[in-house]
């Protein structure tokens, strides 16, 4: 089947089987390798992207759901101002080790910052937001520190990206 969709602001057209995974379309057909595969069953969050402005595991989204959809991946986030602040907070707090889970954590961070503007969140709420992202290296503590810091910075994340 032929699918027309928007990825990181650009309209693209891909040929795929109905049950092909968004993850593979991004990585293999579109060369967007920032999105990683850790488990292939929606448990680890390394493949997290935005689909129609909602956070999803790209390993669980079939091609047949993609028609006219709007996908934003880590590779499309780099130029936003909020991304630079997130990057700085992750770097300075030592929130990265092997880095394989990191793009997924960054996507969830963006979602959290967007949804929490003006609210003050406790650690429990931060942890709930990251329930779907697994990290095996850091013990999570420094990621939480980075996110806590970002939440105090009043960062503006737009409601929609590339629209």
């Amino acid at each position: 089947m032929n699918i027309d969709l928007t990825v990181n602001g650009k309209p693209v057209s891909v040929e795929a089987e109905p049950l092909d995974r968004l993850l593979d379309i991004l990585r293999d057909k579109l060369g967007l390798t920032g999105t990683k595969e850790g488990c292939g069953e929606g448990e680890c969050g390394a493949c997290t992207v935005f689909m129609n402005n909602k956070l999803v595991n790209s390993c669980l989204v079939p091609a047949m759901h993609l028609h006219n959809s709007n996908i934003v991946t880590i590779d499309g986030m780099r130029d936003f101002d909020f991304f630079k602040l997130i990057s700085k907070a992750y770097e300075e707090n030592g929130a990265v080790q092997c880095g394989f889970c990191t793009p997924g954590f960054v996507m969830t961070t963006i979602n959290l910052l967007r949804n929490s503007s003006g609210k003050s969140l406790g650690d429990e709420e931060i942890k709930e937001a990251f329930a779907g992202n697994i990290c095996r290296c850091t013990g999570y503590d420094k990621i939480i520190k980075a996110v806590r810091q970002l939440l105090t910075m009043n960062i503006r994340v737009p409601e929609r990206f590339y629209e």
Binding site: M77, R78, S87, Y90, G94, G99, P103, V106
Partner: peptide
């Protein structure tokens, strides 16, 4: 870390 930025941005 020297590799932090490149890992964060994918």
């Amino acid at each position: 870390r020297v590799d932090a930025a490149s890992k964060i941005s994918g």
